[in-house]
Design a protein around this nucleic acid. Sequence first.
DNA 1: TTATTAATTGTTATGATATAACATTATTGG
DNA 2: CCAATAATGTTATATCATAACAATTAATAA
Lengths: 168, 168
Amino acid sequence: MSSRKTASDFSTPAFRQHDHGECARSLMDAAHDLCAKRGLRLTPVREKVLELLLKSHAPLGAYAILSELASAGFRAQPPVAYRALDFLVENGLAHRIEKINAFVACSQPRKEHSPIFMICNDCHQVAETSVKPQSSSLDRTARAIGFNIQHTVVEAQGLCAQCRERML
Amino acid sequence: MSSRKTASDFSTPAFRQHDHGECARSLMDAAHDLCAKRGLRLTPVREKVLELLLKSHAPLGAYAILSELASAGFRAQPPVAYRALDFLVENGLAHRIEKINAFVACSQPRKEHSPIFMICNDCHQVAETSVKPQSSSLDRTARAIGFNIQHTVVEAQGLCAQCRERML
DNA sequence: TTATTAATTGTTATGATATAACATTATTGG
DNA sequence: CCAATAATGTTATATCATAACAATTAATAA
């Protein structure tokens, strides 16, 4: 058994320590695979934005991304960032965190999933986890009232275990 | 037994038909009670904003509220609306729907609750329901990773039963 | 290959949402 | 009443996001 970890080993980083560089690398590989498989074009600016998200330990706002794009020599008008982000979000490679108007790389880009986010108000990191859609409270409630769900936003703000501990 | 309904009879309107005028009236009464009980001041502008939210069948953006305030003779700079909304949200009389940057009156202002919202993409109405906090998927996940939740955002976008039916 | 179409990127401008900061007025508690 | 606190008035600006259209590049069909 090799010690090499796959992306799915990191599917729920959830504030835990992990080899961030390797995590980012394997998720970037996964993104290339996924785009190849689906005939999508991971163009330079799209790849750069995904790379920025993967490198970041916290969600990035569109304008933060924009200024990093500028530093990297890309054009830096708002639509540049928003278009790349739209592409990544539409294709499940990134998610938008509504509560903080920011974006994170998806930690499990392969599967269909209804992601849920835990946003730490202290360290500002975000953990993505997910839930089997059928078992979510949202889904049960929707079924009860005949509501047909197309998209969900499930986010919690609070304190992660590490930060709480650090505060003692 | 009187035919007069209390606010809690409307705790989950969920796209159903109901007497909106009476619903709004009883929720306004409840707001007055609640403020009296807690020593909060439901000032004219706060009451007006709550009234606007209660009258509306769909969530209202801050600037929509602002323009209605202006029509009603109130001052109409953005902070006027945002302050009133902050007051209402902080005290559980209204909620912010993150996905659409808009606000709705709370349909069950008495109880502590973790509201969840169903946003219809066709009629743009929003149904507020809620879930026992301990039983939510979010809460279970948070416990599993030692995350201390302070606030939750749970929203679904899709089609309500009525609108789907109308489409057939 | 070349013409055509579709997708992507470049660019300007503006729209939409939200808050900082500080002055003024009203309310509450001593 | 007076002091402290809360709420409101006001100006200005920060932040987030998209419309619209032109130019370029890539995919595709002839």
